[in-house]
Design a protein around this nucleic acid. Structure first.
Lengths: 207, 207
DNA sequence: TTTTATTGATTGAACGTTCAATAAAAAAAT
DNA sequence: ATTTTTTTATTGAACGTTCAATCAATAAAA
């Protein structure tokens, strides 16, 4: 089986297996043997490619954050109009992307978020990512409202998005993505309505 | 030191020590020895009073949920007017009670929430509690809007509250309770504004 | 033949639980 | 009021288990 150039393949396999393991049995019981078995490899290979279990967990969190950013960035690039409403709407849509919200990614995301409270490295990853999202929201809101209001709006919308994620990850029936998007977009409309930017919500399709 | 009637004292000491341990080092590293040392007792006593570590963790989660419910119930009982706006406002205030939002309780709450994803017993506790909050919100919203709208409003406000908690527990500077309450109350006002119930937000003091 | 990839038994550390021993208070007996 | 007995509370060393990491051995490709 050993061929050359296995590294990127194995890394992807192991990261995927890590998400699946966390999704099914939780972070606490996701042992290296569990993960390795899911990936169809030996346990020792994890230390070989990631330097240890911690390295694998860090890489997995990076993957999730990258995927989330890509989902947002892709939708923002595809925008036809440059209004704040459109940009922020795209951020909402990216955050409730199907590939993010269903399957292993959702529970893994929450598990890492909780875990990052006491692991400086994960905390830094999460913090940097969160600040970028917040800065983007703030910038777009500031185009149509004063700075103070924009900050509040950004905090509120970020909390709404995270809250919907959180409850979706915990609900036995999973997240109702359609309802989550509706609630987030409606909230966004309400935030904008008070500042004279009556861009219609109908620029965002199907929710 | 052994006197009679130690049980309730020790139980309280250990539950408090558990929250402190989770707050400082996280659930994963909160060992029985850690917790026992903080409480100033031996490790064996945990099994004696709680039947094991799991029993202690369950009791700690029950305590947090009970405290949260009490904070809400107290504010609802103290209400002078019976409007939906007042009741839901009291629910918001209870959720951002100082004793809940600062100190060890916040991080412990999030840690258990994440942990409950894969522990049926904790999941059940969290689920029952969440349904009660949701049912209360739904009932109050239904007094001033149709059933469908009320359900959406309840989901949205619950997500907002949880999202603010979540971000507060993770933020390095902790939760800004004043801002969180402002955002939640403002969102509530917006939800009610569309249904002809123009009860002023000023019935709720100081935010 | 050399290089690269992989295995899996072994090791050592850490954890929760157990339980015989202990010590203090309470109750009973003198 | 002492002393003795019983009860209750607590300890902490020992035990068995589980886990991540290691590394010599192995096997396939180059």
């Amino acid at each position: 089986m050993p061929k050359v150039g296995m590294e990127p393949i194995r890394r992807q396999q192991l990261i995927k297996a890590t998400m699946e393991a966390i999704d099914e049995v939780g972070l606490a019981e996701a042992t290296v043997i569990q993960i390795a078995r899911r990936a169809g490899v030996s346990a020792g290979i994890i230390s070989h490619y990631f330097g240890g279990k911690n390295g694998l967990l860090e890489a997995t969190m990076r993957q999730i954050l990258t995927d989330l950013n890509n989902a947002v960035a892709a939708r923002r690039k595809a925008l036809e109009d440059d209004t704040p409403r459109a940009h922020i709407g795209a951020i909402i849509e990216g955050n409730f992307d199907r590939t993010q919200v269903t399957g292993p990614a959702a529970k893994t995301w929450l598990a890492f978020w909780a875990s990052s409270m006491h692991k400086p490295l994960l905390q830094r990853l999460q913090y940097v990512n969160d600040r970028r999202l917040y800065a983007n929201l703030c910038y777009q809101f500031q185009r149509v409202m004063p700075r103070r209001d924009a900050k509040n709006a950004a905090h509120g919308l970020a909390a709404m998005i995270d809250g919907l994620w959180l409850r979706g990850a915990l609900a036995p029936e999973g997240l109702d993505a359609a309802e989550a998007r509706y609630l987030a977009h409606t909230y966004l409309d309400q935030l904008l309505r008070h500042h004279g930017c009556h861009q219609s919500a109908s620029t965002t399709p199907t929710y």
